[in-house]
Design a protein around this nucleic acid. Structure first.
Lengths: 372, 372
DNA sequence: AACTGATATTCAATCGAATTAATAAATATC
DNA sequence: GATATTTATTAATTCGATTGAATATCAGTT
């Protein structure tokens, strides 16, 4: 039973009509379960559906779309498909869309926001009925998305805090995440904690920091300004790694003691680990490292990376559901609340890259300076 | 200049016709540069193209597809989007397709080959003009693809050796890769090498092994059967990691000495590293590990993973080009050679997970037994 | 017997563009 | 000057499905 369909000539609506002895109109009404089919007796309905099945009829999507002015597609604009963060979100979206009649049209911006306009134009040309943008932390022009939204095409952004006044978004509770990361390190006994924060211009980064600060305040912990580094705002895709490495080197050379690093995201964390390793410091024995995201590599690297897990899959699912809901209530003309952000709860995943602080000395008098 | 298009009402062909003072036919001929437009004077042509541009005319893809029976799309069936191997290939495909008139319709099989048939049906419904299947090492039913090929839809598979008699494919030269991996370890002085091979049923795995054997024979090296482990054929997506871990534990417990592990792929290699680490063996000091693929994580893990790089991007590009070529010469009815496999050259990428063998003891007398 | 309303089915227009056959004017040929 | 030929443009059909208006049948009402 592996043949997909035996005859190569297309079966059209009127083929079914002819074969079943009814008119194309009737066939259409029946197969679409249109309201007008309400008076058509079951006998007719059965006959029609049977012949349709027998002939292997499949409606021509183009004819249908042309007539109905609906494409049955949802645009999915992914900022970078190679970013595992985006990929997992995308898979969540697909999971929700698969059982529906909507086909995702996936476009990959390859980390080049300059071309965003072009992609969106292509999507409009293809008459997408909804738009989901899967963003990583790359900055791009929001006004383009707002344009789409203006056109009555429901739009949502997943993964990033866009801080747009009009566009709804789905993202992780960054503050809770920052808080949890900090708490984890604190509970392991770390008091001298270094930070590699995200770019200042990035909303997500600021909010995570807010969570970190909140925990520190509550715990009565003072954060040393010397131990705070910021990733630059103008970074390519993978340069989180390089940034993390460079900034961690700064930290090491600053000569201020620290026993743990809280990194902006997993890639940054890996950069930190590399830098520490090159400086002869073992993770987690000499220094704990915690990331953010929980990309797949976090599980299979050695040591495993302790991190704040974003529920990427669920975020994608939620976004897809949101769009589907919008599409259902189309025409009701009740616009959803503007600029809403739906926050998902992050989860701490403790792996090998964090460990209790200083198993040896209880008295804090003996400080190991790397360089005087 | 961020507005994508000002007016929300669609501009149709006859709008342009009215505005320019010509008939829809003429406008269509001019804008498509159809053969019949050869007698139309430049004056007319210019006027029409100008008004078209002025009004912001964009042909309706559905109307066009309905009439011309061409969808201007290429189906891209990805076995697992979360697999970085697939992702990078996909990006290569996109790079080549972007400048053309063809839009990729990406479908993700989520590692569930049972649903393949359904996806292919959806693609046929969407009238894809060509099909690129991005395969990882998951086994699936080839006959489905052969069906597509039968329908005059050019088909190609990237990334896997399908061993199909009819379908063309693009993949890495597995034998050369196996050879190079082996050579690398040998040149570092390793003589006692353990292997975690891929599933026996997998063609790629067998060919890699062929390369390994060839080098061993040339170098006069005997391979110990005890040090050869095979991944099971029935594995989920990420279980390469678990498999690698489990089989490496077997190796460790076998008590036969080895100073390097040649793993089937990067994920397997990471499993091996984890197992070694848990057994107290350091990589690369106590044991070198080499992988295959060069997934992104290989670069940012610590130590970096030495591996055989597959040119994933280029493979994708090549596949896309192949399909485009087939589409160009459509109608010429000269079928391409059947079942061709285009081999791409792999590259050794030496990173931190491999190191010269035994800087210390020359005499191999002192064996550390894990358990008797 | 004429009329109403529910039931059952179909006609015909439409979506927007591509394309073939047809027409009209200008020029060339004998 | 009648007839080809080239140049320039268009009317009309087609792709395949949807849908509002129209028609036809029948049971029930007065």
């Amino acid at each position: 039973m592996s043949k997909i369909s035996s005859s190569h000539r297309r079966v059209t609506l009127s083929d079914v009509a002819k074969a079943s002895g009814f008119s194309p109109s009737t066939v259409s009404l029946v197969l679409n379960e249109a309201p007008l089919s309400r008076y058509i007796p079951d006998k007719t309905k059965n006959k029609i559906s049977e012949t349709a099945k027998r002939l292997g009829y499949r409606p021509d999507v183009f004819a249908r779309s042309l007539r109905s002015q609906r494409s049955q597609t949802v645009g999915v604009l992914v900022i970078d498909l190679a970013d595992p963060f985006c990929t997992l979100i995308l898979q969540g979206i697909e999971r929700k869309l698969l059982p529906t009649a909507y086909l995702p049209i996936v476009m990959d911006a390859h980390n080049q926001p300059q071309q965003l306009e072009r992609y969106l134009e292509m999507m409009i040309e293809r008459r997408i009925e909804g738009l989901i943008t899967v963003a990583n932390w790359l900055l791009f022009d929001i006004t383009l998305l707002e344009d789409i939204d203006d056109r009555q095409i429901p739009t949502v952004v997943v993964g990033r805090d866009l801080e747009s006044p009009t566009i709804n978004s789905v993202l992780v509770d960054n503050e809770a995440g920052g808080y949890a990361a900090m708490q984890h390190l604190y509970e392991l006994g770390h008091r001298d904690i270094a930070f590699v924060r995200g770019p200042r211009r990035l909303g997500d980064s600021r909010i995570r920091w807010k969570g970190v600060r909140r925990f520190a305040t509550e715990a009565g912990l003072r954060l040393s300004p010397t131990l705070i580094q910021d990733l630059p705002g103008t970074m390519g895709s993978n340069s989180g790694f390089e940034g993390g490495m460079r900034l961690t080197n700064n930290l090491i050379q600053s000569a201020e003691k620290f026993t743990a690093i809280l990194a902006f995201d997993d890639l940054t964390a890996y950069g930190a680990i590399r830098a520490l390793s090159e400086a002869g410091r073992r993770v987690p024995d000499d220094c704990s490292v915690i990331g953010f995201d929980d990309i797949p590599a976090a599980a299979f690297s050695t040591p495993g990376l302790t991190t704040i897990q974003q529920p990427m899959g669920e975020m994608g699912e939620y976004a897809a559901e949101y769009i589907l809901k919008q599409l259902e209530r189309r025409g009701e003309d009740e616009r959803q609340p503007y600029g809403d952000a739906h926050l998902m709860v992050p989860t701490l995943v403790a792996r090998g890259s964090t460990a209790p602080n200083s198993p040896a000395p209880k008295k804090a008098g003996k400080k190991k300076r790397m360089k005087p």
